[in-house]
Design a binder for these strands. Structure first.
Lengths: 251, 251
DNA sequence: ACTTTGGATATTGTATACAGTTATCCTCGA
DNA sequence: TCGAGGATAACTGTATACAATATCCAAAGT
């Protein structure tokens, strides 16, 4: 699979944050390519486009009523993010990560996010804890409401990023976000089937509690376990699922 | 700045490594976009295009005698890699990383590469040491010959990647390569001015020697210092350089 | 002098058109 | 029935043309 540095930076594509005190928000203008990419990304993360599915330039262009040029550019963006894979003259398919790649991605995430947490913890103020707490409450509320997996993915990242925000490392944060997108797709897939959403909620609360004690070692250990356990679980989950599918294909 | 996941994967764009034993190499066919991107990337890494320099689509298209479409797609790739930055309707410029971003990048590199080394060391065989040794010799030879900085950058990465290869982590490797590209540009800039190329050579030899003792802790410590020291040095170097330039602009 | 406004020019963004490549399917022969 | 070969269709890759947007400069107003 592929990961691009600029996806890290291309987090920047998601619009610079409003700076200064201008009263009237600048009119949000997106290039068509960005808009198309956003829609497709959502569809992929939601699983509306399942892995391995072909992405026809023409079809997408018609669907969104644009020409193929912005579609092509959108596909390049998504490829840089690792969400799709293209073969010359044969078009793009939604990336299907091998179990090994999934494990690798979660492993990278664990390393980077623990590093981020380590940097963040000395800077954590009460308001940071409050922020994380707030997101966690939202998450639990969403659970009760049986919200969709998209909401879950969003809140999951918001919780994690809230922990890392005090580190004040924009590039690192952007990189972690891209990696998260690639992992979340599988997590969501898993959750959509097993529906055991409470597990992550409990793990998150545990992590937050350790952070509050300001014990860096224990906190990073907890976080590391949270991420790698998810990785191992998903690796196995996907491996079995693929096995079944190939068997089904062979009979 | 921006880093894209797919750049990690897009390392894949730099052609999948020959797998298997096919005798006749597959005919190399690159899309124009890939070819343009490759040329531009080289120019940026070499410093032929200095940071902040505008990249006009028309000019590039004329230079390579292609239309603007493949140029645009090449620019998207480079943006994903973090080498350029684009603003809507105003085109692209060669990314100028702030001293803080440089520090951040080197820091991320240190974390990931130490992790990779940690994974690699248990798998290191004599042939791996020999391979690293060989690259190191080439490096030292290039020093004597007063080779250009491009050669230096190439050999630098080849040495580092030789150390991490036994870890057998393709995604991690690809990500590290993209990060390296973003850092190397500044390292080369620095070397092109100060010409003290021997320092890195000595550091590399020291790292390799520790690896041979199979002491994981010491090896990662050595590597970590090697990378973060370079980062600190360059951060200061770029900071001072920028200061001078802004002063020059004000008088 | 300084600011503002209008428009000419340059540049990017998108659509349409065409060329090249790959996949599909049909026919023909064994 | 099966496989080889080739025409056809489908799709991607690139070029050209046009539209939208930004930049620059000069002229008018304060």
């Amino acid at each position: 699979m592929d990961l691009y540095i600029n996806d890290m930076i291309t987090a920047s594509r998601t619009r610079p944050v409003l700076s200064g005190v201008r009263r009237t928000a600048p009119i949000e203008r997106q290039s068509l390519a960005d808009a198309v990419a956003e829609r497709l990304r959502e569809q992929i993360l939601n699983g509306d486009l399942h892995e391995g599915e072909q992405l026809r330039q023409d079809a997408i262009a018609k669907q969104f009523e644009v020409s193929r040029i912005p579609v092509r550019e959108a596909l390049l963006l998504l490829e840089a993010e690792g969400l799709i894979t293209t073969v010359a003259n044969r078009g793009a398919v939604v990336s299907a990560l091998s179990p090994e790649e999934i494990e690798e991605l979660f492993d990278i995430r664990a390393v980077l996010e623990c590093h981020a947490l380590r940097l963040a913890m000395p800077n954590m103020a009460n308001e940071d804890f409050a922020q994380a707490e707030k997101v966690l409450k939202e998450y639990e509320l969403a659970l009760d409401k049986n919200a969709d997996v998209a909401t879950w993915g969003e809140l999951n990242w918001r919780f994690h990023s809230a922990l890392y925000a005090p580190a004040n490392r924009p590039a690192l944060m952007a990189l972690m976000k891209v990696l998260n997108n690639n992992c979340d797709r599988y997590t969501r897939l898993h959750l959509a089937i097993t529906r055991n959403l409470h597990r992550a909620g409990k793990a998150h609360r545990a992590i937050l509690n350790v952070c509050k004690t300001r014990n860096v070692e224990k906190a990073t250990e907890e976080l590391h376990r949270h991420i790698t356990e998810a990785g191992q679980y998903l690796k196995e989950f996907i491996r079995k699922r693929r096995e079944e599918h190939t068997q089904a294909a062979h009979k």
